[in-house]
C-alpha cells in the first residue's frame, strides 16, 4: 500500500471529528479495531471464533473496574484490560485450537458464554446494570480526557477522540505488522493448507495459539477503550450478539482485506445509529443486508471492489 495513502488516511483521521460527531467516530474506531482483531483470525489464519465478545467485553469490565474503583489512569486501565484479554485468549485459545472448523467455533462460543455468566453473576460487574459512570480520567496524569473544546460553537471532546484514535492506530499497526511478518506468512499458510504447513516443519498449533492471543488482546484493547468512551461496561459487550456483530462487520466489509473490517464496522455502526428510531426492526434490516451481501457479493464490499480494480485493498 502506498505510503501517501496511509498519510492521507492518518490526516483524515485527525480532522474528521471536526466534521463528524466525535462519539460516533470513537464508537466506529473501537468496533473497527475489534473487527481488525477478529479478521486476524478469520481472514489470515482461517479460524472462525464465535466468542470474541468475551475478550472485548471482559476487557471493558476490567478497565472499567480498575479505573472506577482503583483510580487507575486511563492508559494503564486500557493496558490492564488488554493484558487481561490476552491472558483469557491464551486460556480459551489453548482449549479451542484442539478442534477445527465448526467445533472450534462452538468451543469459543461455549467458553464465551461462561464469561457472560460470570459477568452476570460476579459481585464486581454490576450484574444487569453493568458498570456505570466509569470516569474517563486524566491521561498520564496530564491530559484531561473530559475536556471539551468549542469549535464553531460545537462542544467537541477532542482529547478523548485523539486518545481513542491513538489506541486505534496502535492496534491497527500491531495487527498490520503481524500480518506482514514472517509469522503472518505462516498464518496464511495454515489458512491455505494446514497439513502442508505441518509437513514443512511448522508447529501449527503454536502459531494458531499466538494468533489467537494477539487477536484476543487487540479485541480487548478495543473493548477497554470503548468502556472509557461510553463510561459503561455492560452485559451487551460480552453477549453473543456482540460476537455475531463482529463476524457480520468483517464479512460485510471483506474477510482478509486491508480495509474490509473498517468499512464493515462503519456500515454496521452507521446503520445502528441511523436506524435507532425503528427499534427492534433494526435486527431484521441488518439481517437482510447481510443476506444480500452473502448471496450477491461474497467477498464483502472491499473484497469485491478489490477484485474489480484487480488490486489488493
Amino acid at each position: 500500500m502506498n505510503r501517501f495513502v496511509w498519510i492521507a488516511l492518518f490526516i483524515l483521521g485527525l480532522l474528521v471529528p471536526l466534521v463528524v460527531y466525535p462519539v460516533f467516530m470513537m464508537k466506529l474506531l473501537c468496533f473497527a479495531l475489534f473487527a481488525f482483531a477478529f479478521d486476524l483470525l478469520l481472514g489470515y489464519t482461517g479460524l472462525l471464533s464465535f466468542g470474541h465478545a468475551a475478550f472485548f467485553g471482559s476487557a471493558s469490565y476490567v478497565t472499567g473496574h480498575l479505573v472506577k474503583n482503583s483510580g487507575l489512569t486511563p492508559e494503564l486501565g486500557v493496558l490492564a484490560g488488554t493484558l487481561f484479554a490476552g491472558v483469557l485468549g491464551y486460556v480459551v485459545g489453548s482449549l479451542a485450537i484442539r478442534r477445527q472448523g465448526i467445533y472450534f467455533a462452538m468451543v469459543t462460543l461455549a467458553l464465551a458464554q461462561i464469561v457472560y455468566f460470570v459477568a452476570l453473576k460476579a459481585p464486581f460487574t454490576g450484574g444487569e446494570d453493568g458498570l456505570q459512570g466509569i470516569p474517563r480520567g486524566v491521561l498520564f496524569g496530564l491530559i484531561d480526557l473530559n475536556r471539551v473544546y468549542s469549535v464553531g460553537g460545537h462542544p467537541l471532546a477532542l482529547n478523548l477522540y485523539y486518545f481513542v484514535f491513538a489506541v486505534f492506530c496502535l492496534g491497527f499497526w500491531i495487527i498490520h505488522r503481524t500480518i506482514h511478518s514472517p509469522f503472518g506468512q505462516v498464518l496464511k499458510a495454515i489458512r491455505e493448507n494446514e497439513p502442508r504447513a505441518i509437513s514443512l516443519g511448522y508447529k501449527v498449533d503454536r502459531f494458531k495459539l499466538m494468533a489467537f492471543v494477539i487477536s484476543a488482546a487487540m479485541a480487548g484493547m478495543a473493548g477497554a477503550t470503548k468502556s472509557l468512551v461510553f463510561q459503561l461496561a455492560s452485559l451487551t459487550d460480552v453477549s453473543w450478539h456482540t460476537s455475531g456483530e463482529v463476524v457480520l462487520m468483517t464479512l460485510l466489509g471483506g474477510v482478509g482485506t486491508v480495509f474490509g473490517p473498517l468499512v464493515g464496522a462503519f456500515t454496521v455502526v452507521t446503520l445502528q445509529s441511523e436506524l435507532s428510531s425503528v427499534g427492534s426492526w433494526i435486527t431484521v434490516i441488518i439481517g437482510s443486508i447481510f443476506m444480500v451481501c452473502v448471496l450477491v457479493f461474497r467477498r464483502g464490499m472491499v473484497g469485491e471492489l478489490a477484485r474489480l480494480l484487480k488490486r489488493p485493498l
Binding site: 514472517p182 509469522f183 499466538m210
Partner: peptide, 13 residues
C-alpha cells in the same frame, strides 16, 4: 521454515 524464522513477528517479510 528451513531458516527457522517462523516465529518472527516483528520484522517485515
Amino acid at each position: 521454515s528451513r531458516a527457522g524464522v517462523g516465529l518472527n513477528l516483528w520484522s517485515v517479510w
